[in-house]
Computed example of a mutant assay.
Amino acid sequence: MSLRDELLKAGLVPSEQAKKRDSDARRQEHQRKKNKTLGAEEAARREEARQRADAELARKREQDRRLNQRREAERQQREHAARARQLIDAHRLNEPSAEAIYNFQDGRFIRAVRVTPAQRKALATGRLAIVRGDRGEFDFPLIPRETADKLAQFTPERVLLLYPESEGDEAEDEWGD
């Protein structure tokens, strides 16, 4: 026999009060279980929302990282173009009085640049190079080999013609100049 039953039998506790306490106890137990399920559901919803927020944050970070990479690449490209322009303009050896035409291949096109006989020899021996300038579509500056080597390090697409370096005497003997 339980304590409640003994108290009822002794008449120390009225039966309505005992029923009310039983009812309250059942109600509290029910609320506790309900809150536990609601708490678990609420915790699951919170966890799901947190996971969605984390996934969104990760996606945003990845998008920002890609955007920053693209911006950095564009900045580097502009920097390389400016540096190339500066190198070419500082070491340009084209002479306005040159009359000989020197033909060379630019991709699938044959291009021409005016050179002096000394420049033609320097081109053939690899001491001069032809590069793509940016003053116009047909701007092909002649620059020294050292400058062309520096230019090829960061913008190799600008170097159009650079023969391997050789001695000029061999070329003269071979062609009978």
Rank of each mutant, 00 (worst) to 15 (best):
T37Q: 14
A90F: 01
R61M: 07
E41H: 08
D89C: 00
T155V: 14
R70M: 11
A98G: 01
E146P: 02
R70N: 07
V115R: 07
D134V: 00
E79T: 10
L161G: 08
E95F: 01
R52D: 07
G176I: 03
A40G: 11
G126A: 06
R75I: 02
E174M: 12
Q77K: 12
V115E: 06
D149I: 12
S15P: 14
R46I: 09
K9F: 04
E47Q: 14
A73E: 15
D5H: 12
Q119E: 10
A98F: 01
Q76S: 08
P117F: 05
G168Q: 12
L3C: 07
E41A: 15
F109C: 03
E157S: 15
Q77R: 15
R46H: 09
T37M: 07
R85Q: 10
K36M: 10
T125C: 15
H91F: 11
S166K: 10
R50L: 08
G133M: 00
L142R: 03
R45A: 13
E16W: 06
D134Y: 00
R145I: 08
G11D: 02
A10L: 12
A129F: 06
D64V: 11
Y102H: 12
H30L: 08
L8V: 04
Q51P: 00
R92W: 09
R59I: 06
E48W: 05
L12K: 12
H80Q: 09
R145L: 08
A171W: 12
P141E: 00
P14N: 14
A44I: 11
R66D: 04
T125M: 07
T147A: 15
E137K: 11
S97K: 04
R120N: 08
D89V: 00
Q76F: 03
A129S: 15
E170I: 07
A40Q: 13
F140L: 05
Q31F: 11
A73M: 13
K60P: 01
A90Q: 06
A53D: 04
R108D: 13
Y163V: 05
R59C: 03
L93E: 13
A40R: 12
R120K: 13
S166T: 15
D24F: 07
A122Q: 15
Q153F: 05
G133W: 00
G168S: 15
R132W: 00
I88K: 00
G11R: 03
R158F: 05
D149G: 08
Q76N: 11
G126P: 08
Q153V: 12
R59H: 08
L7D: 02
